[in-house]
């Protein structure tokens, strides 16, 4: 029974990782192609479908962690995935006014490069039991550049969406109502920006620690 579960787990994770890898590859290809041909204003329109699909598929990673399918701690996965989903759905998809901003291009390219490397690394690891050392190095090194560019783009886009949130009152609930509740999406966004300030260096430090551990382990082997 345990053997069957192990095989099923490997097959499932291999399919999952390679499927999402294809999604991100598509995002990268379309964004670079559009950037060259039509300029940054059209990047979002070109990548919207695969971007939202690939990013939403990451929700399964939280589930994988919760049910013990993978070892990565949910506490580390959850903030990264939720912040990305917030930017993808809660900002880009929700506020069309900022889709033409140049930061969309840097965001999409940063995300896709990171994810292409990450999912191919896990895909090979699940399929063949190991990944080449150069891919391991890329997996734990590209974030040194991609993380700051990605985070800066996320913060920049949230900040640029603030006036549109205030103006449109989208997703906001105002009083009076039966349940005496109000919710302002604008203030949520400010709160999210506030979390980014201490959260980003903390996460960056965590990833540096992971890099040190992984590369040291690879050296020993």
């Amino acid at each position: 029974m345990a053997g069957f579960f192990s095989i099923f787990r490997r097959i499932y994770l291999t399919i999952y990782n390679w499927t999402v890898f294809i999604g991100w590859l598509q995002v990268f290809y379309l964004s670079v192609k559009t950037l060259k041909e039509s300029g940054h204003e059209h990047v979002y329109a070109a990548v919207e479908k695969p971007l939202l699909w690939a990013q939403s598929a990451a929700l399964l990673e939280i589930l994988h962690g919760l049910i013990g399918l993978v070892r990565s701690p949910v506490s580390a996965t959850l903030p990264q995935i939720s912040s990305r989903l917030y930017v993808a759905w809660g900002i880009l998809w929700s506020f069309p006014e900022i889709r033409t901003h140049f930061l969309v291009s840097s965001l999409v390219i940063s995300w896709s490069i990171t994810e292409i490397i990450r999912y191919s690394f896990f895909g090979l690891k699940e399929a063949f039991g190991s990944a080449p050392s150069w891919l391991l190095w890329l997996r734990y090194s590209t974030f040194l550049i991609m993380y700051p560019t990605g985070i800066s783009s996320e913060v920049g886009l949230i900040y640029n969406a603030l006036p549109y949130m205030k103006e449109s009152l989208k997703y906001s609930i105002s009083m009076p109502n039966k349940w005496n509740f109000s919710f302002d999406y604008y203030y949520l966004a400010l709160g999210v920006l506030g979390i980014y300030v201490p959260g980003s260096p903390h996460l960056y430090g965590y990833m540096l620690g992971q890099r040190k551990k992984a590369l040291a382990k690879a050296k020993r082997e």
Binding site: M175, P176, N177, K178, N180, F181, S182
Partner: peptide
Amino acid sequence: YYVNHPLYT
């Protein structure tokens, strides 16, 4: 904040 709100129902 909510219980004492001017628009409380």
